[in-house]
């Protein structure tokens, strides 16, 4: 347990340094002049010219060498200062917080929906006959074969345009959350329902489960006592694996639905070359990822204390 947390802490420090340095190097090697790109984002396409770029260059001291900029950044990072956005001048930490809140909301809603979809379907295909099983598995394979944005586009066409039940894009009300979260939930559920099914099949077919039924416990009691926990372990562990595809899905979904989260912000900051925001966003994503992975580890440990030696 302690070693687990220690290991994760070491990973965290490595991630912070590594992600920061990687983004720094990548962004420094982007083509074109940084001052011009920042000027374009600041002043808009109609008003960007070489004068604006010169102003930006002077204000932000973009002429300083890469090494000294890197040193400054590292020193700031040690004091948890992420700097100000080059474009808006707002503190990065505030920008990232604002984005992170939206992304977390979206990801938790998506995750909750995916569980709500995947668990019943997985259990259904594990417990009913072969026909139901293959039908459900075939359907989830189809969904899995579609990129996230295609699922999003189809949902948009259906729910927002055809029936006009939910708004198309934007944020602010619960109704705005439905379609993005459903897109994320569906794409996650299409994979995790298989894990639920396999796990449930394993448990339902195991000798301890059969024994419990033979000794006279009802179907429901057996499931409650011997089913849930045993099925849950691989499913929860799989959630950890799914985090990556979740975060990738968020980038696409946020772009499609104009959801002001971290993925959307990151894609935008890359376009505008707002290095502090890129670093801040990438860092937060990295930290979040390590944190959630630790959470998954701990959850697995809590459900099944035996497994800890292996991880």
């Amino acid at each position: 347990m302690k070693t687990l947390i220690f290991k994760r802490l070491v990973q965290l420090v490595g991630v912070i340094w590594g992600v920061g340095t990687l983004t720094f190097v990548l962004m420094r090697s982007l083509p074109g002049d940084m001052a011009y790109r920042i000027a374009a984002s600041r002043y808009g396409q109609d008003n960007v010219d070489s004068q604006a770029a010169a102003l930006v260059r002077e204000e932000l001291q973009l002429d300083q060498g890469a090494l000294s900029a890197y040193k400054d950044w590292l020193l700031d990072l040690l004091q948890f200062r992420l700097g100000d956005s080059l474009v808006s001048g707002e503190p990065v930490i505030e920008t990232v917080q604002h984005m992170l809140g939206h992304s977390l909301l979206l990801s938790f809603a998506g995750l909750a929906l995916s569980i709500a979809i995947a668990v019943p379907i997985g259990l259904l295909s594990a417990s009913k006959g072969k026909m139901v099983d293959s039908a459900l598995m075939g359907f989830s394979s189809l969904i899995r074969a579609m990129p996230v944005f295609v699922i999003g586009v189809l949902l948009l066409l259906l729910f927002a345009l055809h029936w006009n039940w939910f708004p198309v894009a934007g944020f602010g009300t619960p109704a705005h959350l439905v379609l993005p979260a459903l897109t994320l939930g569906l794409s996650l559920a299409a994979v995790s329902n298989r894990v639920v099914r396999d796990s449930a099949k394993r448990v339902f077919g195991s000798s301890f489960y059969l024994f419990s039924r033979v000794k006279g416990l009802s179907k429901w009691t057996t499931f409650k006592r011997h089913g849930i926990r045993n099925i849950a372990v691989p499913v929860v562990a799989f959630l950890g694996i799914q985090l990556v595809s979740m975060i990738e899905g968020i980038v696409m979904i946020e772009s499609l639905f104009s959801w002001p989260g971290i993925g959307h912000g990151l894609a935008h900051a890359i376009f505008a070359r707002d290095i502090p925001v890129i670093q801040g966003a990438a860092l937060v994503m990295g930290i979040l990822f390590v944190f959630l992975n630790t959470l998954v580890d701990l959850l697995c440990h809590w459900i099944d204390p035996r497994g800890v030696a292996e991880s």
Binding site: L161, N164, V168, A169, S255, L256, S258
Partner: peptide
């Protein structure tokens, strides 16, 4: 005032009355 980066989603917003 809502920024809609994608032309497609702006069209959809008009269509749906949002």
């Amino acid at each position: 005032y809502l920024t809609g980066h994608r032309a497609e989603s702006r069209v959809l917003q008009a269509r749906s009355g949002q």
